[in-house]
Computed example of a mutant assay.
Amino acid sequence: MEKFDLISNTIVLTFAIISLLPLYWLVTNSFKTSSEIYQMPPSILPAKLYWGNFKELFDGQPAVRWMFNSFFVSFTTTALSVILSASAAYAFAKLHFKGKKIFFMLLIASIMIPKETFIVPLFKIIVAFNWIDTYQAMIVPNLATGFGTFMLYSFFKAIPDSLRESAKLDGASEWMIFSKLMLPIAKPGIGALFILNFVTVWNDYLWQLLMARSKEMNTLTTGVASLQQAINPNIGLKVAGAALAALPMIIVFILFQKYFTKGMTAGAVKE
């Protein structure tokens, strides 16, 4: 058994190192000059930490505004989306109303439809509301997600109905049962959903590209992409921008990975 564990751990470690190599290369190249990035054979580590790429990024581009836009859009969208998903999931799991099964089937079916298929009518709606180049254009269309509701549904479904019935006997309202009793129990799933939604919105390049028309309204992903498209020989500047865009996602996952791993497995129970 110990020999098997050693072999399996070695295999996992090898694949982990391979998967981290692109990230390592991105970070180290952001601290190199353009000439050092292009040199052959490439250097594993920078000869000297070069901060000029980041200095040029913040001096020549509104990178601080891009970062604010990304955090504001991602956090606001995720927070509101989790609230809506949790409310809908609780209703489908614990409440009884007419057409419940039909609505739930439609919800599941919506997960199978890629966003790109309805991006044109959605864009026309945003234009009709005159929301182009605004925060609400990036936030509102991403609030209601069938995936979030379906994910939290299993958590609420696994909670014994006796807890809810006991709370109702004690005089608790439906809102109190949901907010004070059910939400704390489903916290692992909510944490996992928060991370997934945050990463999804942060990387929602296509929709943010369509909505942001001015340079100041760009998010970090679209702003960095504009550097890639610009006629600029400074590859170090572009690499620094890409590294800056990836850093928040790494930090978020490291800080909340225990909620993510626990939340992804806690809801996997048989009814």
Rank of each mutant, 00 (worst) to 15 (best):
Y135C: 06
F71D: 11
S70H: 07
K98E: 11
P121I: 06
S85L: 03
I119N: 01
Y135V: 02
A88H: 04
S74Q: 10
I126T: 08
T117K: 02
L107D: 06
A79C: 12
K94P: 14
L107K: 09
K115C: 00
P114K: 12
K115F: 13
T78E: 12
F97G: 09
A88M: 14
L84V: 14
I119W: 01
W131A: 14
V127T: 10
V127F: 00
H96Y: 15
F129M: 15
K101T: 13
S81V: 04
F75T: 15
I108G: 02
L122F: 00
A93W: 08
Q136T: 02
P114I: 09
S85G: 01
I83Y: 02
I119F: 03
A91F: 07
L80P: 04
K100R: 15
D133L: 05
Q136P: 00
F92I: 09
I102A: 11
F118Q: 07
L107T: 11
A91W: 04
N130G: 08
L106V: 12
I83M: 14
T77F: 11
T78A: 08
L80E: 04
W131F: 13
F72S: 13
A137Q: 05
S70Y: 06
T117S: 05
D133I: 06
F71R: 10
F103G: 15
N130M: 08
Y135N: 07
L107H: 06
T78V: 04
V127G: 00
A128K: 13
A89Q: 11
A128Q: 14
I108T: 05
K98L: 14
V120E: 05
P121L: 05
M138N: 03
F123S: 11
S74G: 06
S85N: 08
M112V: 13
D133A: 02
L107A: 02
F92A: 09
A93N: 10
T76G: 08
S87T: 15
L84D: 01
M138Q: 12
H96P: 02
G99L: 02
S81K: 10
Q136Y: 03
P114Y: 07
M138T: 01
Y135Q: 06
S81H: 05
P121H: 05
A86T: 10
S87W: 15
K94I: 12
A91M: 14
T134N: 07
A93L: 14
S85H: 03
F118P: 01
T77S: 15
F75L: 15
F104I: 09
G99Y: 03
F71L: 15
F75H: 13
K124S: 03
F123A: 04
M105F: 07
A91G: 13
T117F: 11
A89R: 13
K115L: 09
A88C: 13
L122H: 00
I111G: 01
I111T: 03
K101Q: 14
A109D: 03
L107C: 07
S110L: 05
D133N: 14
F123R: 10
F123D: 08
I139E: 01
Q136M: 04
F103E: 10
S70C: 08
L84N: 02
V140N: 01
M112W: 09
A88F: 10
I108M: 12
